[in-house]
C-alpha cells in the first residue's frame, strides 16, 4: 500500500466546520465538514483524520479519535465522516451542533491501492467500516471501474442507505434477521463474488476479518484476488512517532497511522 500518484497533502492541523449531520444506520450519523484548500482533491480512500472530541480547554478525553474519510465533494471541497456513538469521544462529536469547529489533524495514513489492471472491485463493509469503502467506491466509479459493495448488519436499519453510494455501484446486503437482503453474514456472500473480483477491499470489526479470511482462503485460486484490509488500532500521535498503533506483519511491526491503516491481508500476522 502506498500513497497514490498525483496530488498528495501533508498532514496538518485545521479547524473543520461542521456543515451538516445526517442520521444513518440507527444511532450513527454522517457528518459533513469544510476542508483546507485542495483537500478534497488530494486525499484518497483509506486515509483518515484525527479529531479532537472535546472542547479544547478540557483534558478529557485526552487523545484525538481517528475517523476514516467517508466521502469528498470535490466541487465544494468538503468531506464527510461516518460516526457511531460508542464511547465518550464519538458521543461528544456526534452531538455537536452545525457550525461547530472541530480541531482536526490530517490527512493521515496510507490508501487502498487499486492496481492498474483492476476493473472489478469487491468491497466488504461491516458497521462504520463502511466509511472508507464509500470513498473507494466513488474513486473507482470515477475511473469507470465496476464496484460491488457488500454490507452486513443486524437488521435493515443498520445498513448504509443506498443513496450514500454512487448509483453505478452494485449494492449487496445481508442482515442477521433477514429484514433486508440475504439472511446471514455478509461474508457468506463473498464466496460467489471472489471469481468475479480482481481485488477485494474490506473494513469492519475484527470478527468480520476472521470470517472473511476463512472464506477467501477457502475459495480463491492461488493469491488471487488479493485482499486489502483497513485495520483499527488505538492511536496516540497519528504521525508514526509513538509506535502505539502497530500491526505485526511478515515484514515486522508496521505503524497503523503511517504505514497503515490499509494492509495486504496476506502480509498481516493474524493472531
Amino acid at each position: 500500500m502506498q500513497s497514490a500518484a498525483g496530488a498528495t497533502m501533508r498532514p496538518r492541523e485545521f479547524l473543520a466546520e461542521l456543515l451538516a449531520i445526517e442520521p444513518v444506520m440507527g444511532d450513527s450519523a454522517i457528518l459533513t465538514f469544510t476542508a483546507p484548500e485542495g483537500f478534497a482533491k488530494a486525499v484518497g480512500a483509506g486515509q483518515f483524520l484525527d479529531s479532537l472530541c472535546r472542547p479544547e480547554s478540557a483534558h478529557d478525553p485526552l487523545l484525538r479519535r481517528p475517523y476514516s474519510i467517508c466521502s469528498v465533494d470535490r466541487a465544494r471541497n468538503t468531506f464527510t465522516i461516518l460516526v457511531r456513538p460508542y464511547g465518550r469521544g464519538s458521543a461528544w462529536l456526534i452531538n455537536q451542533p452545525v457550525g461547530t469547529l472541530i480541531d482536526t489533524l490530517g490527512p493521515l495514513g496510507n490508501r487502498f491501492e487499486v492496481q492498474p489492471k483492476t476493473n472489478r472491485l469487491l468491497l466488504v463493509a461491516g458497521g462504520v467500516g463502511a466509511a472508507p469503502l464509500v470513498l473507494l467506491a466513488e474513486e473507482a466509479v470515477r475511473r469507470g471501474q465496476s464496484v460491488a459493495y457488500m454490507m452486513g448488519a443486524q437488521n435493515a436499519e443498520g445498513l448504509l442507505p443506498a443513496h450514500v453510494l454512487p448509483e453505478e455501484v452494485e449494492y449487496v446486503v445481508a442482515t442477521d434477521d433477514g429484514s433486508a437482503g440475504a439472511k446471514g453474514f455478509v461474508t457468506d456472500l463473498v464466496g460467489e463474488y471472489l471469481r468475479w473480483a480482481d481485488q477485494v477491499f474490506a473494513c469492519g470489526p475484527e470478527p468480520m476479518f476472521r470470517s472473511l479470511r476463512r472464506v477467501v482462503l477457502a475459495n480463491r485460486i492461488g493469491n488471487a484476488p488479493p485482499v486489502q484490509v483497513s485495520l483499527e488500532r488505538t492511536m496516540a500521535c497519528g504521525l508514526g512517532a509513538c509506535l502505539g498503533c502497530v500491526v505485526e506483519t511478515k515484514h515486522g511491526m508496521r505503524t497503523s497511522c503511517v504505514q497503515g491503516p490499509v494492509y495486504d491481508m496476506d502480509e498481516v500476522i493474524w493472531s
Binding site: H59, T234, C242, M253
Partner: peptide
Amino acid sequence: GNAMPRIAETPAGM
C-alpha cells in the same frame, strides 16, 4: 516491542 494494545487513555493522561 510489546504486544498490542500498547496504549490506554486514562483521566487527563495515558
